[in-house]
Design a protein around this nucleic acid. Structure first.
Lengths: 218, 218
DNA sequence: CCTGCCTGTGAAGAATCCTTCACCTTTTCC
DNA sequence: GGAAAAGGTGAAGGATTCTTCACAGGCAGG
């Protein structure tokens, strides 16, 4: 399963050079000579990485970056420019680029950046093959979300601590919800039976904290 | 409700200058003279923005950035350095900094960066005051997730299109789930009764697409 | 007008989820 | 050792959620 990379550059020669390097390295390549063409190509297929020139006639890299991210949110984007300033680089990253390469670059730099992006994508995705049904049905219950929030804040808690914190006097009820959380692999227990978040649980909470604001800045 | 900013710098003079500027601008400031101290301060309270010097004795900005993000995922981090190269800037952004400022900076640059970060945080948070129960209980059901995915892909669909796409022969069943999705404000209908995603629905799907990979790169 | 299809409602029953109760084992502490 | 608290199980019943069925208005085309 070779990784697919889209090379977007108006300079035909550079496009072909990059393609050659990447093909030699075992990647599957498609090219586009403009931002508009890139968006069309992206409609048809999924890419793992997009190499995007900043400066192109018509829509430049800066302009299509947000469109591209919307079209293919899972693709990693590496911006390429000859015009490297700190401000430009920061601006590109702020807009959602994942990495930034300055022309001229060495073959190794290109390959390193691509491989690193792929590696990061793998880390992001992977281990994250969630059992959606159990995960979301866990999250659909207020008590369970409160338990998660509490453990997330306190790091490690034991059974009765959770019950008291949340004012749940019936411990069998707690147990019922804790069991569901354990089955969904969102919480686990350490060697001393303290309840803790699993890695999955932590990721979910990180994601959740972006969707809510229950501690608004006072 | 003034915004709270944490200034982390080992240079006392600069720390005080920045504090003064920011206090004058109406922010509430705390300071820390090292990475370690910053983490301790962060334990006690929530900050909206952290200004973080890259180069400090002991733990430098680079090292504490991930710890800081873990400790306070909602805080926006602006890195500060005298040693500005494109590589450094890109590296800092890749590690999770939200912006990057080079010393020496003008008063305006500092204030602009801070205000922009706050603005972005507001955009991220806000409009996103989800009704969690209904949202998650919607997402906990496979059929409803499939409906969302389908609408997300096709943009606009009418009732029977959805039913046929998903192979649901009983339309009243579809209707039941659609009603829940409408109540949770995840899908809506346009003027021609086509079903579409609401802004909320789109945000949720964007978030979801990061958590799953149902179109793995072939 | 009538027929067929699209879209929708309300209600009854099936399936699932949540709570509660009775009961049990393990740990902790006096 | 013994009492109290912690931590856990299984089963019964109530509360929700999901499916199914019967029914109906709106709208196209013959």
């Amino acid at each position: 399963m070779a990784y697919k990379i889209l090379v977007v550059d108006d300079d035909r020669e550079l496009r072909e050079t990059m393609s050659e390097i990447l093909v030699d390295a075992g990647f599957v390549i498609a090219t586009a000579s403009s931002g508009e063409e890139a968006l069309t190509v992206l409609k048809g297929q999924n890419f793992d990485v997009v190499l995007l020139d900043m400066i192109m006639p018509g829509l430049g890299g800066q302009e299509i970056l947000p469109l591209l991210k919307r079209q293919a949110p899972r693709a990693r984007v590496i911006m390429i420019t000859a015009f490297a300033t700190v401000e430009n680089a920061v601006a590109a990253m702020r807009r959602g680029a994942d990495d930034y390469l300055t022309k001229p670059f060495k073959v190794d730099e290109l390959l390193t950046a691509v491989r690193r992006s792929l590696e990061e994508a793998r880390l992001l995705d992977c281990g994250f093959q969630i059992e959606m049904d159990s995960t979301f049905s866990c999250l659909s219950n207020t008590i369970r979300r409160d338990i998660l929030k509490l453990i997330d804040r306190e790091q490690r808690l034991r059974f009765m601590d959770i019950a008291r914190h949340l004012g749940i006097e019936d411990h069998t009820k707690m147990n019922f919800h804790l069991k569901l959380l354990r089955n969904a692999d969102l919480v686990g227990q350490d060697e001393n039976k303290y309840y803790i978040l699993t890695p999955q649980g932590e990721r979910i909470m990180a994601c959740l904290s972006k969707l809510t604001k229950d501690n608004p800045p006072q």
